[in-house]
Structure formats: C-alpha cells, structure tokens
C-alpha cells in the first residue's frame, strides 16, 4: 500500500458518498445517470467475487464490502426509492455499445482463461467506460448540478491517483499490471475534458456547470 493508492481509494469513497448523500438529501436523482450507477455496481460485483476466496488485508475486505453496499444503495435510491425523479429519457446511452466490446475484449485479453479472471478483466474494462452514460447525459442536457460535478471530480482524482500509484509501484517493487494500467489510462482520459470544464466553470463559482 502506498499513499497514492490510499488517497485514490479515499477519493473514490468520497465520490460515492457525495453522490449518495446528494440523492438522499435532495430526495431526487435529477441529472444523474442511473445507467452509470448500474454499471459501477456491476463493476464492483464482478471484481469483488474474490471476496470469499482470497483474503488480502482487513482494509481490502472492508473497502470491498463498503463499495458494494454503497453502490447498490445508490442504484436502489435511483431506481426504487426516488424513481419518480429519475429522468430516464435523458439517460439514453445504449449500454450494449459498452457491454458487447467489453465482454468480447475480456475474453480475448486476460491473464488466465478462468471464470474469476475473466470476470475481473471484464470489471476492469467496464470501469473504464462506466462513466460514459453520465458524461453523455451532461453533454445532452448541457448542464450538471455542481454536486454532480464534485462527484465526477473526485472520481477523476481517484483515477489520476491510481496512475501515480502504478508509477510508484513500478519503480519501488517492479509491479506492472498491464490490463489495469491500460484500462485505467483510458478511463482517466475521459475525465481530462471534464476536469477542464470543472476548473473553468464550476470553480469560478458558477454553481451550475453549463457546457458551451
């Protein structure tokens, strides 16, 4: 464990909590892509199947349970509790455009052709595109509430810190997880455009982020 990975995991946790609290306190999920949240729940489910077979550390196990619980709670709030505030017509990204290539690729490129390994690879590739429906919704509606942008900011920060973590681990322990690194770089690239908008629009106190 290194500071970059720990900070990254904390940012990830903060992002999930920001979103969950925003939905719970505003009792609304307007402007939030339910599809992205479903994809994240699938990412955690397919990645953390080793929860029962491999024990890494108390931290690892606890964080996996927390991420699973919070992501399912978020999906529950969107599709059950506050479903009347969910504008599904704006959440129109075709998930099959993501799932088909990701499933195909995880069968082609993986470390071992075993169910657990293929599901882990699937979760890595899926996570890199899971935010697309949310970013698509923002470009479609042309705006995002500032809380949603804070959520995206921390999510992007988590990915950037993970890249720093991989650089650190490569230089200190020669660790290099090719699938995770390639997928993580692709995922981080999606946030770069958003980071620019976040800094120029939201941090200038505009409250809402409106796209040009």
């Amino acid at each position: 464990m290194n500071i970059f990975r720990l900070a990254g995991d904390v940012c990830h946790l903060v992002a999930i909590i920001i979103l969950l609290l925003k939905i719970w306190r505003s009792r609304s999920c307007a402007g939030i892509s339910g599809k992205s949240q479903v994809l994240f729940a699938i990412v955690f489910t397919t990645r953390y199947l080793d929860l029962f077979t491999v024990f890494i550390s108390p931290y690892n196990t606890i964080m996996k349970v927390v991420f699973l619980a919070l992501s399912y709670a978020t999906v529950y709030l969107i599709y059950m509790r506050f479903r009347n505030t969910f504008n599904s017509e704006n959440d129109s990204f075709r998930l099959e455009f993501l799932l088909v290539p990701v499933i195909g690729l995880s069968f082609l490129e993986n470390y071992a052709f075993t169910p657990l390994e293929i599901l882990w690879t699937f979760s890595i590739f899926l996570e890199s595109v899971a935010i697309m429906p949310q970013l698509f919704m923002i470009t479609k509606t042309g705006e995002a509430e500032s809380i949603t942008t804070h959520y995206l900011f921390f999510l992007g920060l988590y990915r950037a810190l993970y890249i720093a973590n991989w650089v650190w681990r490569y230089h200190t322990e020669g660790f290099f997880d090719q699938i995770a690194v390639v997928s993580g770089v692709v995922q981080t690239i999606f946030y770069i455009d958003f980071f620019y908008l976040y800094v120029t629009k939201v941090l200038r106190g505009r409250g809402k982020m409106t796209l040009p």
Binding site: R5, D9, H12, R47, D50, V54, I56, S57, N60, M63, K64, F67, Y111, A112, W120, Y162, N165, F176, D177, Q178, A180
Partner: peptide, 10 residues
Amino acid sequence: DGGEDEHDEL
C-alpha cells in the same frame, strides 16, 4: 504476460 495470481488493488 504479467500474469496476476491475486489482485490486491480495489
């Protein structure tokens, strides 16, 4: 191919 026996990252 850099096989990973166990994935220790979240």
